[in-house]
């Protein structure tokens, strides 16, 4: 599913690498934690996978497709199969929950009735179907993150990338959010979750890829 070969990434010439000679293989349907201290390269790895950054060296294959050689015209189509969740949610504050979750489907040119149906089902799945017409700022942090996850899941992604999705949330909300990721994984989505929340890893043990200063320091499956 995801393969990285000798991937190097540095943001400035002569500066230390954000990622250094990284080799990884993540099979389809896997659930992987990417851990490490701040600056370890977790976010950089995710950015490389949704083509927000290009590696300086090495190759990245997603579903057999070499995305390091992908032209900018093709990147949107890769992202249509990839759900992305951020720590700061990245929701549109001037749009309702329904509109936020419908956004990726509108972009893909889906029919209106199809969008309505799918968005309602997805919001129901994350427990927010009663707040369809609320705006993000009318919700709690945990609810906003659930909307962001709904937006990522509404496209039935092959891969779900989450960058510190529970960084600002308390433990109860974090547990709910993790349930959503586990559910997506159970339906066949490959999940890569960047976190330094050791408690979560202890509670839901899955494969852990640990990075430090851009290098792979640990890769184990409990």
């Amino acid at each position: 599913m995801i393969q990285l070969y000798n991937v190097c990434k540095s943001y400035q010439k002569d500066s230390s690498s954000a990622l250094h000679n990284l080799n990884l293989k993540i099979p389809k349907g896997d659930f992987v934690y990417i851990t490490g201290p701040s600056g370890a390269g977790k976010s950089t790895l995710l950015k490389l996978l949704y083509c927000a950054e290009k590696p300086n060296r090495g190759q990245i294959l997603v579903n057999g497709q070499n995305i390091t050689r992908m032209g900018s015209r093709h990147i949107p189509y890769l992202r249509r199969r990839t759900g992305i969740v951020f720590q700061d949610f990245k929701l549109l504050e001037n749009r309702t929950l329904f509109e936020n979750v419908a956004f990726p489907l509108e972009i893909q040119g889906k029919k209106r009735y199809e969008i309505s149906n799918k968005v309602y089902q997805t919001l129901k799945h994350v427990g927010l179907h009663g707040k369809l017409h609320k705006y993000p700022l009318q919700l709690s942090g945990g609810e906003q993150q659930r909307v962001a996850i709904a937006r990522a899941l509404v496209i039935d992604p092959l891969i779900l990338l989450a960058d510190e999705p529970t960084g600002n949330l308390d433990i109860d909300v974090t547990l709910d959010i993790f349930d959503l990721f586990k559910g997506a994984n159970a339906r066949g989505t490959t999940v890569l979750l960047a976190t330094h929340n050791r408690e979560m890893i202890r509670r839901f043990p899955r494969r852990v890829i640990a990075l430090d200063q851009g290098k792979l320091v640990e890769d184990f499956t409990p």
Binding site: S72, P76, I84, K90, L92, F103, P104, R151
Partner: peptide, 16 residues
């Protein structure tokens, strides 16, 4: 700019 960024992240083409 947030809207532009989000559009790009959820797979909107440059033309769209």
């Amino acid at each position: 700019r947030d809207e532009l960024e989000i559009m790009s992240l959820v797979g909107a083409t440059s033309l769209f």
